[in-house]
Structures are given as structure tokens and as C-alpha cells.
Design a protein around this nucleic acid. Structure first.
Lengths: 346, 346
DNA sequence: TAGGTTTACGCAATCGATTGCGTAAAGATG
DNA sequence: CATCTTTACGCAATCGATTGCGTAAACCTA
């Protein structure tokens, strides 16, 4: 129990392994091995060390460990827009899945300042974080450089479709098919003038959903005439604005497929404000199945994303990439069409 | 430019300061000082080092730095329930404010496993993270022990009212007063039977809002009779359930103050489903002012939380606590009553 | 009991950035 | 020109945990 090295005894020092070692009368090597449960430590010693650790109020220093192991057990999640419930809803599952794998998550919101994400790519390159989960199609320029340079990094993308860049593993649904299913459903209900509220024109997700709409219309012998396409965005405000534009058109559509639930919320609110009934006057469908969609008036027909699966598979892939470089092909998960009153012929 | 130390040249090593130093022909001390912009480095050398850093693709290793400085520039945000938009909406501003101060944020969702938060208190105690922001009234047991032991830790609580424990700085609104304002508004509209949809009975936030309701009723000479209190929760589902219970009561209330917007959403959806009109048959008000509340049908009267202020002040306080131990008294911020159609006498 | 094996542990290097202290070289002053 | 500053940098210790290697001591076997 004699002191080996002079350990300073300031009142409020953070306890280190050396403190535990001193209390237990062993070396730090032994403490480390005992706490990690490694082989040649007899039960009796292990107990004593555990007791000493508790007594000292010891907890490992994450940075010392990460520095030594060159692995931090931290992954970064880049989120484009937390205001869209889609992201927190996914984040719940990401958080859970990561926790179950022993990873902590750092988040960075890229809505205001997309350039911010470049800094985190540097963190990845510097070995400060183990992996990055992109929950949107936006890809930091610095990352593109690395991919172009043929570097192989632990990065997974999810929730949005793959743009035509390879080199980043993706976990996603078939967005075109999902949009197709919604429009197909509307067409089968007998709607003829099926409009589409398009998302941001350059957003890959929006492009895919539009493509699904066009495809389904074509397959049903309906036309995707320009007056049936309304340029909008992914927010409620833009959905509201779109309602005004629709009313200004010569002929109203009889159904509208919105590129996401949020714009559908805004659209429906505005249409109702103008005295139109949903679905009697105009049927509406969305995309995402946010939790509110089930209880709104009327309940909204939409596409349910397999958020939990997406999160779990993404984390699983990321873990694989971090730990052994394998498992880097894309995954397509099944979506589900949720049919509710907003799209049903009365 | 001669090599000083044998630096291994594996193809894909992560560049370190030593690499930069070698390229620039200086020592790591100089690199460190140059990159940090510290005094005695002439511009010419600084340039050369910056160039070398870029050439090497260098970025500092967060863990090495944190270990040395005993400061990580990471704060942890504990979030009870990401499914309630209140939290992501606050998180947006927390993320932003933290970023502006040079902090990164880690998040931990405590909905499923509250015991999880204890681990993060250990991280704080071990010096692995710099501070903790609690966005709910739940307080990890381990933390209570520390406070009881008189330890002074960088922790700030926000978004929920303070329970009767001192020792943790809080940034919040006057929940009782805010609830009072809502009910006061309803009473001034002429409503007489003003019911309250209470949140989880042991939740401090729910208790405060109930208290505000009772106080306002008393001040208006109205009674808070037991049949006007409906036990519910903070979710849409529970709001829906509450609607059924209300209809089973002998006499309907003419106004209902819900303990949050989400339960109001569920309640309104269910009441409308039963053919009741809002506000003609029953007025409804909520609490939180989630973004959806402005566009729903009818738009919901509610209390707007100063989320941005809360986030900024919280981070500011946390920063102060981390950096110099000062600024540890509570802050009460102003709320705002948002009056919309759901509570207006027609 | 000599020689061999196993068990239980310690020593010291290592991870990468930071920084107090020291010191040549350049410049300033008398 | 001798002495004193100032400038510009390098050396080496440090932060705390991990781990390869080494080694006493205990245990076994012939």
C-alpha cells in the first residue's frame, strides 16, 4: 500500500487509475486489466480493485482511452433539419441502436450552416470520431474529395436516396417505388387529376418522389401535365402557399400527392380555410407518416418509413465499417403504404 | 528538413503534428503554437506551417488535445423524449448556441432507459465531458449524490421547472404563471366550466401547470371541481383517451386547458370525431406552441416557450460554469400567450 | 529436487497535442 | 566591442489508459 509515485493530493482532483491502484495496492496495469475483465487476474484481486474503484469514485477517462486505442466509440450524426419530425423520430432509434452497440452519438445540425459539416469530416479523418451517419443527401465537399481520392471511410447514409455517387454505403427505401405506390393507390380510387406538390427541385428525395408520381400516372394512362405539378417545399408554410397557387389554376385537381407530410399539413389547413373538404373535394396524400398524421383531421394517407429498421441497419453497417471494413453494399428496406381517410372516396 | 525521429510510413496513417513538423522543418511545439496563433511565431513560418498542414491533410486529434487540456469542448444534452417536438425544437437552438461557443454536443435519450443517464454523470465526474444540459426535470441519482456531497458541477437544467432541489442552475419560464395566463384568458372570454387535462401526476411540469389552472380559476371565482380535472398525459394518444372520458361525464366543460399541445392535438381530433366543434362547443388551449399549432384546424391557443432564449442562456450559463465557476443563479425567462381561434368565442 | 510450466503481476513505452523552461542567434544599447 | 534584450524556436515532461514484454513466485512433473 505504500505510495509508489508521488501523487498530488489536491482536494478536488479527478481520480485516475493511479489512485485506484494505490488504494488496491497494485499497479495500474492490473487495475486496467481487472476492470476490463482480462485473463490473468484472480477473482479476489478483481473484487478488491472494483471496491477500490468505487471508493475512489473512479471512472475511465474517455480521451485517454480513445487516444491510446485510436477509437473513440463516438459516431457523429449529421442532421439537415431537426424541425422536420422525421429526423428526431429517426434519431430516437439511432440513439438507441448506437447505445446498444456501446457507441455515443454526437449531433450536428446542418440546416443553418452546411459548411459546418466539413469540420466533422476532418474529425473523422483525424481519428477523433469513429464514424459518420448522414441522414440526408447533402454530402460535405471535403468528403467528396476523400472519396474521389479513393479513401475508404466509415460513413453511412440513410433516410434519403443515393445520388449518383458511389463510395458511401446507403440504407434506404425505394423512394420512387414508394411514391409510385401512393399515386397508384389514388388512381385506383378513381382519381383522375392527380397533382403533385414537389419538394425542393434539386433535392434528390424530391426528384425521386416526383419520378414515382410520373411513372404511376403513365402506367394508369393519366397525364402528368404541367398544371398538375406544383413547385413547393418540405415545410408547412410552403404547403400553405401551394394551396393558393392551386386555387389560382383554371381547373382544380381531384387529388394531390404531397412530397412529404409536413407540406401536406400546410396544404390541408389552407384548403380547409378556403372551404374545401378533404377528401370529398380534394383527396390528399403525404409521405413520411409522421406521428401527427394518424390523428389529424382527416387522418392522412402516407408512406411509413421503416425508421427503426433504418436506424438499426445503419448503425450496424457503420459498426461493421468501423470494426472490419466489411459490409459496404447498399440496403433497400421495405416501406409501407398507410391508407387513411384523406384519400378515400366517400 | 531532415527526419528527426523515425516516423513510420505506413500507407494510410493518420497525419499527426509530427508529420506537419517534418514537412515544415520545425518542431511540433512550433506547429502547435503556429496553428493556435500564439505569439512568437513570425508570419512567414506560420504560413509555411499552415501550408504543410494542408499538404499533410492534418487535423488535430480531439482526444489528445482533451487529454492534455483536461477540457473536451463537449457537452452532453440529456433528452427525455425526442418524440415530443418540444425537444428537437429546443435542440436546434442548443446545437446552434453550443456551436457558436465552440462546443460540440453529445445527446442521450433517456425515454427508454433513464438509468442510462447515470453513466454520463460518471463521464462528467471523470472529466470526459465538460458539462451537462438537462432538458427535463428528471435528475440522475448519481448526480443527486454528488450534489448532496456538496460537489459543484457544470450542469444546467432547462425547459422544466425546478423541483425543490438546489445546486443545479436552472433556466426556465414561470410555468405556474404561464398556465395561469392561459386559464385567465379563457375565463375572460366568458368560459365558466374550464377543465384541465393534467399531465403525468408526478411530473413537476404537470404539477405546476395544474397549479396555475387552479389559481386562475380561484381568482375568477370559478371552482376547480374534481369533475373538471382529467388525468391524462403528454401524448396525443392520451389526449384522445381523455376525450372519451370527458364525454362520459355528466356535464361537458365549455373549455379545456391541456397541459401541452400534443395532448391537445389528440383531444381535439377525438372531440371532432365525436361531432363536437372547436371552439363553438368546447374551447381548447394547449401549452408549448409547437409549430403545428399554428396551422392546425382550428389554430391552437397556447403558450409559446422562449426556446431560443432558453437554449442560448443555458449554454451561456454552462459555459460560465465550465470556465469560471460563476453565474449559478436561476434565470426566469418571459413566456408569451399565443391566442388563436381554438379559444375564441365566436 | 532440478528443471519446466503456469500464474499473477509490474515496468515502461505508447497514443498526439500542449507548454514551461531553456537557449542559440539576432538585434539593441552604451 | 561587451553586455543586455528580444526573438524564435526546440526539448522533454505531461495528460491517463492500455499492453507487449519481462519476471518473480508458485506449482508440477519426473
Amino acid at each position: 500500500m505504500a505510495k509508489r509515485k508521488p501523487i498530488p493530493t489536491n482536494e478536488s482532483r479527478i481520480p485516475t487509475m493511479a489512485d485506484v491502484a494505490r488504494i488496491a495496492g497494485v499497479s495500474t496495469s492490473t487495475v486496467s486489466r481487472a476492470l476490463a475483465g482480462l485473463p490473468p487476474i484472480p477473482e479476489e484481486t478483481r473484487q478488491r480493485i472494483a471496491q477500490a474503484a468505487k471508493e475512489a469514485g473512479y471512472a475511465v477517462n474517455r480521451h485517454a482511452r480513445s487516444l491510446r486505442l485510436k477509437r473513440s466509440k463516438v459516431i457523429l450524426v449529421l442532421i439537415p433539419n431537426l424541425a422536420n419530425p422525421n429526423f428526431p423520430d429517426l434519431l430516437i432509434h439511432i440513439d438507441r441502436a448506437a447505445y446498444d452497440c456501446g457507441y455515443d452519438i454526437m449531433i450536428a445540425h446542418t440546416a443553418i450552416d452546411p459548411g459546418r459539416s466539413d469540420r466533422y469530416v476532418d474529425e473523422l479523418l483525424a481519428g477523433s470520431i469513429d464514424g459518420v451517419l448522414l441522414t440526408a443527401s447533402y454530402c460535405p465537399p471535403r468528403l467528396l474529395e476523400c472519396i474521389a481520392a479513393g479513401r475508404h471511410l466509415p460513413i453511412v447514409r440513410t433516410l434519403s436516396p443515393t445520388p449518383d455517387l458511389t463510395g458511401i454505403t446507403a440504407v434506404q427505401i425505394d423512394e420512387v417505388k414508394a411514391a409510385y405506390d401512393v399515386v397508384d393507390h389514388l388512381a385506383k380510387q378513381g382519381y383522375k387529376r392527380i397533382a403533385h406538390l414537389g419538394g425542393p427541385p434539386k433535392e434528390i428525395m424530391a426528384i425521386a418522389r416526383r419520378k414515382g408520381w410520373e411513372k404511376a400516372l403513365a402506367d394508369h394512362g393519366l397525364s402528368a401535365s404541367p398544371d398538375l405539378y406544383i413547385q413547393s417545399g418540405f415545410t408547412m408554410i410552403e404547403g400553405q402557399r401551394a394551396a393558393d397557387e392551386i386555387r389560382s389554376r383554371s381547373e382544380l385537381p381531384d387529388a394531390i400527392f404531397c412530397s412529404n407530410d409536413e407540406s401536406a399539413y400546410g396544404l390541408i389547413a389552407a384548403l380547409k380555410g378556403h372551404g374545401l373538404r378533404i377528401p370529398q373535394d380534394i383527396a390528399v396524400a403525404g409521405f413520411d407518416d409522421l406521428s401527427f398524421s394518424a390523428v389529424m383531421d382527416p387522418p392522412l394517407t402516407t408512406v411509413r418509413l421503416p425508421r427503426r429498421d433504418m436506424a438499426e441497419r445503419s448503425i450496424q453497417k457503420l459498426k461493421a465499417l468501423i470494426e472490419d471494413d466489411a459490409d459496404n453494399d447498399n440496403t433497400i428496406l421495405a416501406h409501407e403504404l398507410i391508407i387513411r381517410a384523406s384519400s378515400l372516396r366517400s
